[in-house]
Design a protein around this nucleic acid. Structure first.
Length: 272
DNA sequence: CTGTTTACCTGGGGGC
DNA sequence: TGCCCCCAGGTAAACA
């Protein structure tokens, strides 16, 4: 499932290939994927040049010149990939962008159709981020803000780290990995962590995410980069999907349970 | 207001 | 083989 490292991998891939390309046409085959009227969507972006591509949390932003911006959220199973101009889309490929003087198209594919593309004015991106209640990006947050976020309530660490309004970008896989690396149990609460413990968590967040970006994301089933290639971070997972297998550190079996309704993996010996 | 549960989708896997 | 049921997960909306 695309979380921060997967969206970052896509943002970098798109930046490498689509910067300064001009959108020539958009083929929408499933209109619920785009927010609002399909015809308006087409009209507002056709003929516009891609000026900048970046992400905040799991949201991807394409800035067009002179206007507008497109926000894309892949949710559970969304994919963005480049393919030959004339390749035939399968039944889950809902939208294609064509470009001037470029022999590839950018396709949006989404088996579960949870993802969305939205048009917003460029000047309103910060407003959009506010309306979506997104906190600071998980790679940009500073220790003070993380501390405030974790002490904001007596919910579990799992719930706190998944809460996009506190810090944006973490999903189920990386939260489990971060809590393992930091050595904290997912159902323990954040409000009585010491400064030293918060620092441990802070470092684990950045370490786990940076490593996953280096590995070009985690591919358990769906994730692919803009070239259709799988990531390799699944081979570095310590707890997620490892239920019953021996912990890499202490050889005790990894436990899978539910915390806040989410599948949660941890080592009862290494995490306290 | 806060925190928890459910709906949205589809494919895959287990049980029989 | 095939059918039924449940599970996976990010977010928004509904709920307590």
């Amino acid at each position: 499932m695309p979380e921060l490292p997967e969206v970052e991998t896509i943002a970098r891939g798109l930046t490498n290939h689509l910067l300064d390309k001009r959108i020539a046409a958009v083929d929408i085959r499933c209109s619920k994927i785009v927010n609002g009227d399909e015809e308006t969507f087409r009209r507002l972006i056709c003929g516009r040049k891609i000026e900048k591509i970046y992400r905040h949390g799991k949201y991807l932003f394409l800035l067009l010149s002179p206007e507008p911006a497109v926000s894309i959220h892949l949710r559970m199973s969304g994919q963005l990939y480049l393919s030959g101009y004339e390749s035939i889309p399968d039944k889950h490929t809902h939208l294609d962008f064509y470009f001037q003087n470029y022999n590839k198209k950018l396709s949006y594919r989404d088996i579960r159709k949870f993802g969305r593309l939205e048009i917003i004015p460029k000047g309103d991106i910060s407003g959009y981020i506010r309306r979506k209640k997104l906190g600071p990006d998980a790679l940009e947050i500073n220790r003070g803000s993380l501390s405030t976020a974790l002490k904001s309530s007596k919910r579990s660490l799992k719930a706190l780290l998944l809460d996009q309004s506190l810090l944006a970008g973490l999903g189920n896989i990386y939260v489990d990995e971060i809590l393992f690396l930091a050595g904290f149990l997912p159902f323990s609460t954040g409000n009585k962590l010491t400064g030293r413990q918060i620092e441990k968590l802070f470092n684990a967040i950045s370490e786990v995410l940076q490593q996953a970006i280096k590995n070009r994301g985690t591919t358990l089933s769906d994730f692919i980069d803009v070239h259709g290639k799988r990531g390799s971070n699944q081979f570095s997972l310590m707890v997620y999907g490892q239920a019953g297998k021996p912990c890499a550190k202490c050889r005790q079996p990894i436990i899978k349970t539910k915390v806040n309704g989410r599948g949660t993996h941890y080592c009862a010996f290494c995490q306290r």
